[in-house]
Design a protein around this nucleic acid. Structure first.
Lengths: 158, 158
DNA sequence: TATTGTTATACTCTATAACTATA
DNA sequence: TATAGTTATAGAGTATAACAATA
């Protein structure tokens, strides 16, 4: 049996059982759940992701932040405006290059981040409750083998 | 090691390595690729999915179609208008209940559907080229164990 | 009165390009 | 002239609710 047959056989009965569709659908649900977890903390999805990034890096330039979030720099402005007016992050001028803004997470931001991470962890436990630790490791490994190069266009439309 | 530790340990270094995020991201890429495959056939993503559904069922009422596509009936109108004006599907009044429209795929629709399915299969071969048939089966099985109940809210925002 | 499909309105999101301030 | 960030505009997509036809 070839790889192609493995993927198409199961699709004979229902085209939406195709592996590509399955991955897209389960990914959308996972996204939706994480989205909702952030919202319970009063954060928009990408605001939450931004806090997570800043939580490990401490501070980043807006350029790097936009690249990591895969959003246009002009979109990042809106995300940061919300976070900054809530006192969760700070924009500081880079002394070495006064064009740049260094975005840093505040103590208040770290406090909320902790809650957000708990909420996301809870969502994951709900999503993967029926998988054993071994299966979770296996899923992680298999996802890593899916050919999705970092620079890939990621469209979230349905 | 508990399930929770399995999921959080890998996230210590990079929060975007969390399994929930990974699944969301790979799903988004898969979605994007399928999206693009349909577009090469001149179909919007949900138009393609609609054709796939009609390809196996032959014909469906708009209510059932909207439910299967998880879109509002008013959104389905736009999708079907495009497909019908292109001659790919037909709307017929249900003789038994003249309020209902039965949507049926045309011969022309089946012809384009075949091409679209080839394009999607090609996308899948690209995505899963590094996975053996056994791994593909394993991935399918693991995804099936992810707790995503059918009626789940699926949000595709990033 | 309830239901099927349709239309209309307002709202959100995004992409593009112009703008400013610095280099 | 080029770059970092910001703002403004227009377009697409969506959700909500009103609507006509039929039950």
């Amino acid at each position: 049996m070839t790889v192609n047959e493995t993927m198409t056989d199961a699709a004979e009965s229902d085209p939406l059982q195709r592996l590509g569709f399955l991955l897209a659908r389960h990914g959308a649900v996972a996204n939706s759940r994480v989205h909702h977890a952030f919202e319970t903390c009063g954060l928009a999805a990408r605001q939450g992701t931004t806090l997570m990034l800043l939580g490990t890096s401490g501070s980043m330039g807006q350029q790097a932040l936009a690249a990591a979030l895969e959003v246009d720099p002009s979109v990042l402005v809106g995300i940061l405006n919300g976070l900054e007016s809530a006192g969760l992050v700070e924009r500081r001028r880079d002394a070495a290059d006064r064009r740049r803004h260094i975005v840093a997470i505040t103590d208040e931001g770290r406090c909320l981040l902790a809650k957000a991470q708990d909420a996301v962890a809870e969502v994951e436990q709900g999503l993967f409750a029926d998988l054993s630790p071994e299966e979770i490791t296996a899923l992680r490994g298999l996802l890593a083998k899916v050919r999705t190069t970092p620079g890939d266009p990621v469209c979230t439309e349905q």
